[in-house]
């Protein structure tokens, strides 16, 4: 479902004498439907970078990223937009929302973008918010004033409200207590059993051990320092 091959990336900082910073060389990985693969490696090794490249948020200098039938590398903006809408979900570490939008609508957004009837979309949003223990009184409020843990759960709700065939998770259990962590792990298990391909970054080793089938160490793709 997700196949990365020979992926290479540099950053060129034009405003610092065009310094070229290589960050990844010939990265490869393969995730099948129903699998969850963890990216491991030291902080700064390139885990988030690789995830962002898979999502199309960062450009690659060389290589391919296949999500189903679409190669993200070289894809048009339109194709990536529709890929993100229908196929590839991403739960990042930060919640970025338009101020003033109610939590319920933030979570229902991916469904509404797919044309799902708004009342059904909101119902499903409410279901998953309940699952993640976000109290009802918060559903009408904008999540911008929530605590870190609450924002994280809203983020996760938005990432799981629609059944993406492929999902990217960046630290999904950070800032969560034990109860909510197990809810999230349960959501991941459910996604796996319905056939989703998942790539995740988990600092929490036990969480990683529980849901991930394999680990890939991204340090293997780090550029050689001479």
């Amino acid at each position: 479902m997700i196949t990365v091959s020979n992926l290479t990336k540099n950053f060129v900082l034009h405003n610092q004498n065009s310094a070229v910073i290589p960050v990844m060389v010939k990265a490869s990985l393969d995730v099948k439907a129903g699998e969850c693969v963890a990216l491991i490696g030291q902080s700064g090794a390139g885990k988030s970078t690789l995830m962002r490249m898979i999502y199309g948020n960062y450009l690659a200098q060389d290589g391919d990223i296949w999500i189903g039938q679409t190669n993200v590398v070289g894809a048009s903006a339109r194709d990536i937009i529709s890929l993100r809408r229908e196929t590839l979900g991403y739960v990042s570490q930060f919640l970025r929302v338009v101020p003033r939008v109610a939590t319920r609508d933030v979570v229902a957004e991916p469904l509404m973008a797919l044309g799902v009837d708004p009342s059904i979309a909101r119902q499903r949003a409410e279901n998953i918010l309940s699952l993640l223990n976000i109290p009802k009184r918060l559903w009408n409020l904008s999540p911008t004033t929530f605590s870190g843990g609450e924002q994280q759960r809203v983020n996760i709700a938005r990432g799981f409200v629609y059944e993406y065939p492929a999902i990217l998770l960046d630290e999904p259990t950070a800032s969560l207590d034990a109860v909510n962590r197990s809810v999230v792990l349960e959501l991941i298990e459910r996604a796996k059993s319905r056939g989703a391909a998942i790539v995740g970054i988990f600092h929490d080793e036990s969480a990683r051990a529980q849901v991930c089938d394999r680990e890939i160490d991204v340090s293997a793709f780090a550029p050689q320092v001479n």
Partner: peptide, 21 residues
């Protein structure tokens, strides 16, 4: 030119990098 989040998060052109920073 490109995807909004890509241009803002991984700007390639010198001017874009300056603008974003």
């Amino acid at each position: 030119a490109g995807l909004t989040d890509q241009v803002l998060d991984d700007p390639q052109h010198a001017y874009t990098q300056l603008l974003v920073s």
